[in-house]
């Protein structure tokens, strides 16, 4: 449904971009995925690169990202999105390629592909949604689950002695020479969404310069997995996730 351009003499100043399909998203109420999908596709729309963009969807809640993003897309096996994106970008070197993955996909089963993709400096954008939990399979412990965090597979709370420590993979990747732009953002407030969108814009621009991998971690909520309302989840995220996963650029190109 497309809303009119003008209502009561007022002009439209914000609407869903045409780079998103009309399909209603299946995500739970308040889920960060929808916001990240939206700003990603807004950037594609505003840059006018829909015909030059190919995305890769992961396995996880965002497995159906291609139902919503109105660009050519491939669905990768669990953990392999960055390898698939590598294959695409290598044979289509003038295309904008992004891989979209969650924490289990990117930082557990796909760690090898993640590290080596960034180490090769593949000219792609990797979007990493970190909500510290496996959402789709029902709230199991993720590599990024915080210590003490209760999940369906850490019902008494994550213990370092048993499960190791929450993985700050973004800091780890920033050490690699192939990483060109590495940043950690969130989308839980208007200001945060705007900053995250700027990071996405910059990352797409950098792709044309072919100077290495752009990596954006989005510290995201999971209201259903965390068993909270969306607003409670966003508050919890600020209080608990941000101290361990601080927001901001970790490696930014010199301007």
């Amino acid at each position: 449904m497309k809303e009119p351009d003008v209502i009561e003499g007022m002009e439209v100043v914000y609407r869903k971009p045409q780079t998103l399909t009309a399909t209603p998203m299946h995500y739970c109420p308040g889920c960060s995925h929808g916001v990240v999908h939206k700003i990603l596709m807004e950037v594609v729309d505003e840059m006018g690169i829909q015909d030059k963009t190919v995305g890769v969807a992961p396995v996880g809640c965002s497995v159906f990202a291609y139902d919503y993003m109105n660009v050519d897309m491939q669905e990768a096996a669990h953990g392999r999105a960055s390898a698939v994106a590598t294959g695409i970008r290598r044979v289509l070197p003038d295309t904008y390629v992004f891989a979209y993955q969650g924490d289990g996909d990117l930082a557990a089963i796909g760690t090898g592909e993640t590290v080596h993709t960034v180490n090769r400096g593949e000219n792609i954008l990797m979007v990493f949604i970190n909500n510290g939990i496996y959402g789709m399979t029902g709230g199991q412990m993720a590599p990024t689950s915080l210590l003490g965090m209760k999940t369906s597979t850490s019902p008494y709370g994550r213990e370092a002695a048993v499960n190791g420590y929450p993985l700050r993979i973004t800091e780890l990747l920033a050490q690699l020479p192939g990483a060109y732009y590495v940043t950690r953002q969130s989308v839980h407030t208007t200001a945060a969404v705007r900053k995250c969108k700027k990071a996405i814009e910059a990352s797409f621009r950098y792709q044309t310069e072919k100077r290495g991998t752009c990596f954006i971690e989005v510290v995201a909520n999971c209201p259903s997995g965390w068993k909270m309302t969306p607003n409670e989840a966003n508050d919890w995220l600020e209080k608990n996730m941000f101290p361990y996963y601080p927001i901001g650029d970790i490696k930014a190109p010199k301007q």
Binding site: V54, V56, Q74, A76, A77, R80, A83, V84, A85, T86, G87, I88, R89, R90, V91, L92, T95, G112, E113, V115, H116
Partner: peptide
């Protein structure tokens, strides 16, 4: 022609998936 040594067979076959999906003879 693109020739790329991957970090594993797992990564390599998924690169093939991506490149084949992008229409290349792989």
């Amino acid at each position: 022609v693109v020739i790329l040594q991957a970090e594993s067979e797992l990564a390599a076959i998924n690169m093939v998936y991506g490149a084949a999906g992008a229409g290349a003879r792989v």
